[in-house]
Design a binder for these strands. Structure first.
Length: 557
DNA sequence: TGAAGTTTAA
C-alpha cells in the first residue's frame, strides 16, 4: 500500500490556479483529471463567479481517491500567489512570471526542506547547508511566519540564515523568533536567544520583553512572567509604568486578575501607577465578571486622583452587556453623561452589538440612531457589527447592502468585515456569495486569517466539495495561514461524517505530526469508523499516531 | 492582538 501523501511530485507542470490542486495526480492514470484540465481551460469566465467554484460545483457528487492527493502544505509547487490574483483571474490559465517570483520560489524551495520533521534545529542547519539563496529580511520573516508553529524548523532556519555572508538578523526578526519559541513553550531556548540578543547589544527592546512576558503569562507561568519583569534591568531596560502595565495587562488577559492585582499591590510602591494601570485592572475584573471588584477598583482609582474615563465606563458597560443587564447599562450610560464623560463610538458599538446578539434588532438600531444623534461617526467596526446583526436576523441582502454602503461612504472594510460577510453567507448556505467575498478580499489589501476560512471549510465538508476544500487549504498555505487544532478537528470530523475517510486520515496525520494533540473524542470517532469500514491499515496507522500524541501530551505536562 | 468594540458555539 502506498503511504499517504508521500508521492514525489513534479515541479511546475501546471501553472493554473486550480490545476495546482492536482499537481500530484498523474493525468495519464486518472482520466477524470485529464478531463478536468481540458475542461478547465475551456470554462468560460464569468466575473461574478469564481470560475474554479463553478467547476467544483459540477463535480460535487463524484468521489475521488484521496490517496492521489497531497496536502497542499506538502506540495512543492502550489501556484496561488497572494498579491497577484487579478492577473491570474484575467488570464485564467497562466500566472505571469514576476520578478518577485524568484524570491517566492526561493522561499518555496527552503520551505520544502523545512517541511521534513527534524528532531533538532542543528539537523535543520545541516540540511540547509547546500542552499545559498540571497537572504533578506523579507525572506526571513516570510519563512518565520510560515513556520511559526514549528519551532525546530524555524529556529534551525533562523540560525542558518544568521550565518549567511553579509546578512544580520534585524531586531524584528529576533523578536519574531522569541515569540515563536514562547508560543511553543520552549522557554529555556527562548531565554538563550534573549541572552544572545543581550550580548550582541541593543537588540532587546520593549517589544521583546512584551513578547516574553505575554508568552509566559499565556503558559500560566505567572511567577516567571513577574520575574521576567523584575529582571529587566539586567538587560539594561528601565522598569517603568509602561512595562508594569504590560505585565498587568498580560496577567489580566490570561484570566488571572487576582495575580495582576497582587502584582499591582506589590509594585505600586516602587513604580507609580497611572490611569491606564487602573483601567487595565478594571477591565480584567469586568472580563472575569467580578463587577463588585471592578467598582471597588474604580473607587481606588479616584483615591489616587485619577478620573474614570470613557474606557473605564465602557469596560463596565461591556460587563453588563455580557450579562444582558440592559437596565444597568442604561444606568452607567447616564452616570457617564452626568460625569461629563459621554459615551463614544466604541461604547455604542458594544451596546448595539449585544442588543443584536440578544435578537433585539430594533433596540440595536435605536442605539445606532442615538449614536448618530450624539455626533459619533460610525466607523468600520460599527458597520461590521451591523452586518453581523442583520445577517443574524436573517436579512442577508441588507447585510450585503451595508458592505456596499461602506464602499460608497469611503469607510474601508477590514479583515473582520470580510470574515463576517463570509461567515454570514456560509451560515445561509450561500457558498457562491461567500466565495465572491473571498475573491474581493484578495483584491483588497486585507489578508485573510483562520476565521476567514473556517466557515468555508465547514461548508465544503458538508457539501462534500472536496476540491473546493483542498483549494481552500492551498489558498491558506500560500498566505501563510496555518491550520490550528480547531480547524484540523473540524476537517477530520467533517470529512468523517461525509465518508471521506482517507482524506480525514491525511489531515489527522498532519495534525499529529505538527504537534497538535487531538481530543480523544476525535480519535475514538475516527478509529470506530475505520473499524466499521474494515480499513485495517489505516486503523493501525491512526493507532500509532494516537500513541505519538499521548507521548507528546506527557512531555508537555 | 494587547487600554475599551466588530468574526465563533449545538
Amino acid at each position: 500500500m502506498r503511504l499517504w501523501g508521500l508521492h514525489k511530485i513534479a515541479r511546475h507542470h501546471h501553472q493554473s490556479l486550480l490545476a495546482s490542486l492536482f499537481v500530484n495526480s498523474r493525468p495519464q492514470k486518472i482520466p477524470a483529471l485529464c478531463n478536468f484540465h481540458r475542461n478547465f481551460c475551456n470554462v468560460s469566465y464569468s466575473p461574478e463567479l469564481p470560475y474554479w467554484f463553478r467547476f467544483a460545483e459540477g463535480e460535487q457528487s463524484r468521489d475521488f481517491d484521496s490517496e492521489d492527493f497531497l496536502l497542499p502544505t506538502q506540495l512543492e509547487s502550489f501556484d496561488v500567489r497572494p498579491p497577484d490574483n487579478r492577473r491570474v483571474r484575467e488570464h485564467m490559465t497562466f500566472v505571469q512570471i514576476e520578478p518577485s517570483k524568484f524570491i517566492d520560489d526561493a522561499i518555496d524551495q527552503i520551505s520544502d526542506v523545512l517541511k521534513v520533521r527534524f528532531s533538532s534545529p542543528e539537523e535543520v542547519v545541516l540540511s540547509l547547508s547546500n542552499y545559498s539563496p540571497k537572504v533578506s529580511k523579507y525572506f526571513v520573516d516570510r519563512i518565520l511566519k510560515r513556520f511559526s508553529d514549528d519551532w525546530i524548523s524555524a529556529l534551525g532556519f533562523f540560525w542558518w540564515a544568521g550565518a549567511q555572508m553579509g546578512y544580520n538578523h534585524s531586531p524584528d526578526s529576533y523578536d519574531m523568533m522569541v515569540d515563536i519559541l514562547g508560543k511553543s513553550r520552549q522557554f529555556d531556548t527562548m531565554w538563550c536567544l534573549v541572552e544572545e540578543m543581550n550580548q550582541l547589544g541593543g537588540l532587546i527592546s520593549l517589544s521583546t520583553m512584551t513578547k516574553v512576558i505575554r508568552r509566559l503569562a499565556k503558559a500560566a507561568r505567572w511567577k516567571d512572567a513577574i520575574r521576567a519583569f523584575s529582571d529587566m534591568e539586567q538587560f539594561g531596560m528601565k522598569k517603568d509604568t509602561v512595562v508594569m502595565n504590560i505585565l498587568l495587562d498580560s496577567l489580566c488577559k490570561e484570566r488571572s486578575v487576582m495575580r495582576a492585582r497582587d502584582a499591582f499591590l506589590d509594585l505600586r510602591r516602587e513604580i507609580p501607577p497611572n490611569s491606564t494601570s487602573f483601567n487595565m485592572l478594571i477591565h480584567g475584573w469586568c472580563k472575569a465578571r467580578k463587577l463588585k471588584e471592578a467598582w471597588q477598583t474604580l473607587e481606588e482609582m479616584k483615591e489616587f486622583s485619577f478620573k474614570p474615563c470613557v474606557i473605564t465606563y465602557t469596560s463596565l458597560i461591556e460587563a453588563y452587556c455580557m450579562d444582558r443587564d440592559f437596565r444597568k447599562v442604561e444606568d452607567v450610560l447616564n452616570e457617564m453623561r452626568a460625569q461629563g464623560c459621554p459615551p463614544n463610538v466604541i461604547t455604542y458599538t458594544i451596546v448595539m452589538h449585544s442588543f443584536g446578539k440578544a435578537n433585539d434588532t430594533r433596540a440595536a438600531f435605536s442605539v445606532l440612531e442615538q449614536m448618530k444623534s450624539d455626533g459619533c461617526l460610525p466607523d468600520t467596526s460599527v458597520y461590521n457589527s451591523l452586518i453581523y446583526i442583520l445577517a443574524r436576523a436573517g436579512q442577508l441582502r441588507e447585510a450585503f447592502g451595508v458592505y456596499d454602503d461602506m464602499n460608497e461612504k469611503g469607510i474601508s472594510p477590514n479583515v473582520t468585515t470580510f470574515n463576517t460577510l463570509i461567515a454570514a453567507a456560509c451560515c445561509h448556505s450561500q457558498a457562491e456569495n461567500a466565495l465572491k467575498f473571498l475573491v474581493k478580499m484578495d483584491e483588497s489589501s486585507c489578508t485573510p486569517d483562520l476565521k476567514t476560512y473556517s466557515p468555508l471549510l465547514k461548508l465544503s465538508c458538508w457539501r462534500k466539495w472536496t476540491r473546493v476544500l483542498l483549494y481552500l487549504v492551498g489558498h491558506m498555505f500560500r498566505r501563510d495561514v496555518g491550520l490550528d487544532l480547531g480547524t484540523y478537528t473540524l476537517l477530520v470530523h467533517g470529512l468523517c461524517r461525509v465518508g471521506k475517510l482517507k482524506l480525514a486520515c491525511i489531515f489527522y496525520e498532519e495534525m499529529v505530526l505538527k504537534g497538535f494533540i487531538p481530543k480523544s473524542q476525535l480519535s475514538v470517532m475516527l478509529l470506530e469508523i475505520l473499524d466499521r469500514k474494515n480499513m485495517d491499515a489505516a486503523k493501525s496507522r491512526v493507532q500509532k499516531l494516537i500513541l505519538k500524541a499521548q507521548n507528546m501530551r506527557q512531555q508537555t505536562h
